[in-house]
Amino acid sequence: MTYRVVHYINQFFAGIGGEEEAGQRPLLKEGVVGPGQALAAAFGDEAQIVATVICGDGYFAENMDRAAAEVVDLIASCRPDAVVAGPAFNAGRYGTACGAVCQAVKENLGLPTVTAMYPENPGVDLYRSETYIVETTDSARGLRKAVPTMASLALKLLRGETPGLPSEEGTLPQGRRRNLFRDACGAERAADMLVRKLRGEPFETEYPMPVFDRVPPAGALKNLKEATIALVTSGGIVPKGNPDHIEASSASRYGEYDISGVDDLTAAGYGTAHGGYDPTYADGDADRVLPVDVLREMEREGRFAKLHDFFYSTVGNGTPVALAARFGREIAEKLRNAGVDAVILTST
């Protein structure tokens, strides 16, 4: 028999359009669309992509519960045996949507699901325990490599086979444990691992420690009236012309911009460098992303002492976590030297 598969993709991979079409509501197309062709080829005769469900990343991110329910209804109408979503690579909203679709399909339809993302995609941590996520590179260049892995895992699940270890299947670990028999007991294996470690030889832990990088909340602002407040954004707001050439995605830098004496971020003076959302509204009035106008007003009214003379801005769009962390450390250092008391960080 040929298994029936529904494929979920976003408006971009469907060829509908980029950010200007990110508000696209869920829709169903028969057969394969875009990356579904490669997936269908990898399935061969064993499975058929009966339909493709498409939704804009912006619509999904802003209406997650409703969008997931609408997508599940469309999927259910095709009576599939499994659902494949993506690959989403390092696109944050797309990855989150793929994960949410897989979770909703599992909960409401009880079907196996497979998606694929770059390990740093925020959708991974949100949904890794709910679905199988094949590891991909950070951009669509990795499509050719990801698709056969996704297809072979989906076929395994469709046949009712149990997938192997994440390293064997090419998936990101779900954090599940499964009982199995080993030749040597735990003490022997632990001693062997210790010896390898002491010799400087490679070894593989059987129980990786989870990394919870949490920062305890800083204390509240005690006296707002005397405070200096600084603005930081990942929304890419920059002076017109983007003088530091901050990249539209995968930003390698941030900018520091003097707003002393600036009462309003006008369309003539400011816009966004961000390539991950529709820039129409930010370019029309950058206060919609970085609220300088109202903060200036409140400063005048004495709600707080001072709006810091500089704002800091980068583009949070596929930016590697390690780089974003460095930007944060450097910005914090500058804010400390400037005597800033608290920070409003805005994100799109």
């Binding site: 909203r93 925020p122 800083a218 450390r329 400390r336």
Partner: peptide
């Protein structure tokens, strides 16, 4: 960025639309 600025001791408020990402 939010976390590193907070780690340096500043209270930070993250004002954003996709709450699950901020929480993660």
């Amino acid at each position: 960025m939010v976390k590193e600025i907070e780690r340096a001791g500043f209270p930070v408020v993250h004002m954003c639309t996709i709450i699950p990402i901020s929480q993660t």
